[in-house]
Simulated scan of single mutants.
Amino acid sequence: MTMIRIAGREIGPNARPYLIAEMSGNHNQSLDRALAIVDAAADAGADAIKLQTYTADTMTLDIRAPGFVIDNPRSPWAGRQLHSLYAEASTPWEWHAALMARARERGLHCFSTPFDDTAVDFLESLDVPAYKIASFELTDLALIRRVAATGKPLIVSTGMATLAEIDDAVRAARGAGCRELVLLKCTSTYPAAPTDSNIRTIPALREAFGCEAGLSDHTLGCGVAVASVALGATLIEKHFTLSRAEGGVDSAFSLEPAEFAQLRIESERAWQSLGQVNFQPTAAEGGSTQFRRSLYIVKPVKAGELLTRDNVRAIRPGYGLAPKHLDQLIGCRVVKDAAPGTPLAWELVRAA
């Protein structure tokens, strides 16, 4: 069994997909906006709201040397100095308690991605129910061990990672005490293209590492996330904002409330549709069999007359013999008069 629980909520094949709304830096440095994002996530049907716990100084250095400025022209943060970007995107630590309290009031789980030991210590003081390791920290095995040692469920994104790197991370987590693990297929581009998503990896993650598997999705819309459910994703994370038009460091690839609500509906429908391998009519289909084609007398015939392709046809409804018997019946004689609309049955005919 790979099923886990976060604050009592089952995550596994027998439960609808667990949906995480990632706030990231979409609060735009406004606590009121951050609280409104929590409320909107609850209204949209999220199971959890996720924060990120770091400061600019715990992430990088305040310099503009090569590598400390984003030089990828395709990045939504092209030209930004790392320290400045992280300062803008960070969630002030003094907000965390208020955000978690609002989440509890609204029936949401609230946990975070820590980026160093000080963040883990702080989050432990708030008794978070779970932890998330970001793709970029998957190779930070010391951090993974520190988080795993808390004994809380651990969610790990695998963007950019090789199979060997994932194996290192899983071994580090389990070696430090992690017993409840979810690996997320992730593509670390912003936004990500569906063609780069490779969600067929999801069942491979589950099989290779014997844990739950899901998707951290940076594509636009919810099509990729819904499709992942068919491949066994039991947890889906999407960035979330009140309005892309209002900006924010992650707004360009974040879902708005109405879109997240649609994700909740469609991901649950996708999960409900999985069912099991079945080659029998379902109970719900029982009444539909009457509308299949079957063999009927379509012209008046007298007792002793031969059945021909002129007076027998496969038509609806389905109360006669199956159409596959047509060749057997042609040339047989009817044993009594039959009017058009008489369903063919074996007792109505005899060999010529």
Results as ranks from 00 to 15, higher is better:
residue 17 P to Y: 01
residue 18 Y to P: 04
residue 20 I to A: 11
residue 26 N to S: 06
residue 29 Q to I: 00
residue 35 L to H: 00
residue 40 A to N: 13
residue 41 A to K: 06
residue 42 A to F: 05
residue 43 D to L: 11
residue 47 D to R: 04
residue 60 T to S: 11
residue 63 I to L: 12
residue 68 F to K: 11
residue 70 I to S: 02
residue 73 P to N: 07
residue 75 S to R: 12
residue 77 W to Q: 05
residue 82 L to C: 00
residue 86 Y to G: 01
residue 87 A to E: 14
residue 102 R to K: 15
residue 116 D to M: 02
residue 120 V to D: 09
residue 121 D to C: 03
residue 127 D to E: 14
residue 128 V to T: 15
residue 128 V to E: 12
residue 128 V to A: 13
residue 135 S to C: 10
residue 141 L to G: 12
residue 142 A to V: 13
residue 150 T to I: 13
residue 150 T to Q: 11
residue 153 P to W: 02
residue 154 L to C: 09
residue 154 L to Y: 06
residue 158 T to I: 09
residue 159 G to D: 03
residue 159 G to S: 08
residue 160 M to F: 12
residue 170 V to T: 06
residue 173 A to E: 02
residue 173 A to M: 02
residue 174 R to Q: 14
residue 178 C to V: 14
residue 186 C to L: 08
residue 189 T to C: 09
residue 192 A to Q: 00
residue 192 A to C: 01
residue 197 S to E: 15
residue 202 I to M: 04
residue 209 F to C: 06
residue 213 A to G: 07
residue 214 G to I: 07
residue 234 T to R: 11
residue 239 H to D: 09
residue 239 H to T: 07
residue 244 R to Y: 01
residue 245 A to N: 13
residue 246 E to L: 11
residue 250 D to F: 06
residue 252 A to P: 05
residue 255 L to G: 02
residue 257 P to R: 06
residue 257 P to I: 01
residue 270 A to P: 07
residue 271 W to R: 02
residue 273 S to K: 11
residue 278 N to R: 13
residue 278 N to C: 10
residue 289 T to V: 15
residue 289 T to N: 00
residue 294 S to N: 04
residue 295 L to N: 11
residue 296 Y to M: 03
residue 301 V to R: 11
residue 301 V to S: 12
residue 315 I to L: 15
residue 316 R to F: 05
residue 320 G to K: 08
residue 326 L to C: 10
residue 327 D to F: 00
residue 332 C to W: 07
residue 332 C to Y: 08
residue 333 R to Q: 15
residue 333 R to A: 15
residue 339 A to W: 00
residue 342 T to L: 10
